[in-house]
Design a binder for these strands. Structure first.
Lengths: 346, 346
DNA sequence: TTGAAAGCGCTAACAG
DNA sequence: CTGTTAGCGCTTTCAA
C-alpha cells in the first residue's frame, strides 16, 4: 500500500517526543547542546514518523544550505552533459548536494532574462551559490557567489572558468603549419558566441605570425553543426585551389568535414588534415586530430571554485583558464579503445 | 561593476510602489482584482528593482509550484543522461520547470534511505511531483504524486514506467533462434536489479518454448560492465563447444563481447551473433544487433504522466510498459550515419 | 480595489 | 540543557 501520509512537520515530531520544536531543530542541525538521551529519543521518533525537513522552510531561515545551484539551458545537449559530468564528480566529492534548474528549452529569445531570473531564484532562496553554464547574460542580481562556465561574454567582475580558446587555436594552427600546410581553411562557429570569435582570432593571428598570407575565401561562416560542416567542407574542397587542411570551430563541425572528405574519397590525414576544436568524448571522433577543451574538467574546476567562494576560502585566480591541449593521434586511439570503439579501416 | 545588491523582497517592491505587500503579491500571481494602473506601476517597479520572488517562501505558502522534481543517482552515467534527455524534452514542451536533485554519488549503501529522503525533501516542499529514476527504494513518504522510471523493484501501488524486459528478451531470443542458433549464451546483469532478472527469465522461457535444451554453462554471471562482458565472452568462446550467439544483458556488456570477438578474429554477425539489450545512442554500438529500450522515451513518457497526475487528468494506465523493439542492422547503420560515424571495416 | 494580519515550517537569539 | 519568542518572505483570508 502506498505510504501517502500527509507531510509530517517538526511540530509533529516535537509533540510526539514531548519536547519543543527548538530541541528537535537542534538535533536536526547536529548541535552539541542536547542531552544524548533526548537526542536518541527524538531521532527514533523522526525515524518512526518518516520526517523530512521542509527544504523551503529551512532555506528561508538558515544561511547555510549545503546546496549548489546549477543553471543550464538544456540538459540534453552533449555540451551541457559533458560539463555536468564534471560538476557531478566535484559535487560527489564534496559535502554539497546539487540542485539543477532548467526549462529544457534550447536557447532562444529572452534567454538572458531567463538566466538572470533563475540565478536570482536559486541564489536568493535555495542555494549557497550557483554555477551558470554558457550564459548569454553577463550581469546577475544575487548575493551569493556565482561562477560562470564558458560565458559568451566575459565579464571580468564575475569569477569564471573559460577554455583558452585563443591560445588553443594558436596551438592548433601551429600544429597544422608545422605539418607544412599553407592553405588552411577555417569554418567559423556562431559569431555571437565569444569563444568562437576568439578561436577565429587565433586562426588569423597564427597565420600572421607564420607570415602566411590570409585568403579570406578560406574563412567560411558556420554554426557549430555537423550539417554546416559537411556543406562548407564540400564547398571548400570544390574550390579551384582547395585547402589542404581544415580547422573546424568545434567537433560537430569537424564531423561534417569528415563526412564530406569521406564522400569525396579523401583520406584523413593523408589527403586532408582536420582539426576539430573541442573535447573528445566519443569514439566517433577518434581519427580527428583534436583540441581537448576539457568540458567536464571545466565543470569540475568551476564547482571546486564555487565551493571555495562559498566557504570564503581564498581563490588563486578570479578567472580560471582551462588549458586546451592537442590530442595526438595515438592518444585518440587509446581513448577510443577505452570507450569501446574499434579501429577504423585504414 | 558586479551587481550585488542584497536580495530585494516583496516588501521593498511594496514600499517603492507605495502599496501593500498583498497588492504586490496579487500582481505577482496574476490575479484579476487589481486596478490596471496599479498593476502597471508595480510591474515597472519590479523591473527596476530586478525583483525575483523567493522560491523558498513562495513554495512554503502556495500549493502550485510549476516545478517537477527529479531524483537521479548519478547524472554522469549514460543511462541517466538518456532518460534525462527525454524528461528534458517533455519539460520543454510543458509549462513546468525542472528541479533536479543529486548527490553525484553512484549508488552505494544507504541508497534506499537517500532516495526516500530526497523524494520527501522535494515533494513536501518545492515541487508538484517527482520522478525517481532507477530507484532501489520501493516505498516513499510523500503527498504529491510520484513516478518511478525503471524501478528495481516493481511496486504496483506506484505509477511507473518500465521497459518490457521480459517480452523484449523473448523477442531477442526469437530473433536469434530464427537465425538458426541453438547454442545461445546469456551474460547476466546485476542480479539485484529486477529488469536484469526479467531478461534472464525471457531467455530461459524462449529456449523452453522453442524446445531447445538449456545448457546452464551458457548462463554466466555479469554486472552490466564492459570489462565483465569481455572476460565472460573470452571464457565462453574458449569452451569446447562454444556458443554461436551471445545475448548480453545490456549494451555495455555487449561492447565487451564485441571486443573479445574482435580479439579472437571472429566477425560479427558472421561467426557470432550478438545481442545487446539496451538503447542505442552511440555510433560505437552500430554493428551490434540491439534491442532498443528507448530510455529517453521512458523519461519523456514518465514526465507526461506525472504532469497528468499533477493536473488530476485521467491516466490511461497505472503502469506504462515501454515496448522494446529490435533494431535491424540496416537501421543501426542509418543511425550511425546520423550521429556521424563511419562504417566499420567489413 | 486595497490593506492588515495570520500563519506556512523552520532556525536563532534569549532566557531560564 | 531546554523552552519561548520572534521572525524569514510570501500568500491568503477577512475587513474596509
Amino acid at each position: 500500500m502506498p505510504v501517502k501520509r500527509s507531510p509530517v512537520t517538526i511540530q509533529d515530531v516535537a509533540k510526539a517526543a514531548g519536547v519543543s520544536v527548538s530541541t528537535v531543530s537542534r538535533v536536526l542541525n547536529e548541535r552539541a547542546d542536547v542531552a544524548s538521551d533526548t537526542r536518541e529519543h527524538i531521532l527514533s521518533i523522526i525515524d518512526d514518523l518518516g520526517y523530512t525537513s521542509n527544504l523551503a522552510a529551512r532555506s528561508m531561515r538558515s544561511h547555510k544550505k549545503n546546496l549548489i545551484g546549477l543553471v543550464v539551458p538544456d540538459i540534453g545537449f552533449p555540451y551541457s552533459i559533458e560539463i555536468m559530468k564534471g560538476i557531478n564528480q566535484a559535487v560527489a566529492e564534496s559535502s554539497f548536494d546539487l540542485l539543477l534548474y532548467t526549462t529544457g528549452q534550447i536557447r532562444k529569445v529572452g534567454t538572458i532574462t531567463r538566466e538572470q531570473h533563475y540565478v536570482s531564484l536559486l541564489n536568493n532562496s535555495l542555494t549557497d551559490g550557483v554555477i551558470i553554464v554558457a550564459s548569454a547574460a553577463a550581469e546577475f542580481i544575487t548575493d551569493a557567489p556565482i561562477i560562470a562556465v564558458d560565458p559568451h561574454l566575459i565579464n571580468p567582475n564575475y569569477t569564471s572558468v573559460q577554455g583558452t580558446n585563443y591560445q588553443g587555436a594558436l596551438e592548433a594552427m601551429d600544429y597544422l603549419l608545422g605539418l607544412g600546410h599553407r592553405r588552411i581553411a577555417f569554418i567559423c562557429g556562431r559569431p555571437e558566441i565569444g569563444s568562437a570569435v576568439r578561436r577565429l582570432k587565433g586562426y588569423r593571428d597564427a597565420l600572421f605570425h607564420a607570415g602566411v598570407e590570409l585568403d579570406e575565401d578560406l574563412i567560411v561562416p558556420g554554426d557549430f553543426s555537423t550539417e554546416t560542416g559537411y556543406e562548407r567542407a564540400l564547398h571548400l574542397l570544390a574550390m579551384a585551389d582547395p585547402p589542404t587542411a581544415i580547422f573546424a570551430s568545434n567537433d560537430q563541425t569537424a564531423i561534417g568535414v569528415f563526412q564530406a572528405a569521406d564522400e569525396l574519397g579523401l583520406s584523413i590525414p593523408g589527403d586532408l588534415s582536420v582539426i576539430g576544436f573541442d573535447n573528445i568524448t566519443e569514439a566517433k571522433y577518434f581519427d580527428l586530430t583534436t583540441i581537448d577543451q576539457g568540458l567536464s574538467q571545466m565543470g569540475y574546476v568551476a564547482t571546486q571554485m564555487l565551493i571555495k567562494l562559498i566557504s570564503n576560502d581564498p581563490l588563486d585566480v578570479q578567472v580560471y583558464k582551462m588549458p586546451t591541449k592537442l590530442i595526438e593521434r595515438s592518444s585518440c586511439q587509446a581513448l577510443a579503445k577505452k570507450v569501446g570503439a574499434r579501429r577504423l579501416a585504414q
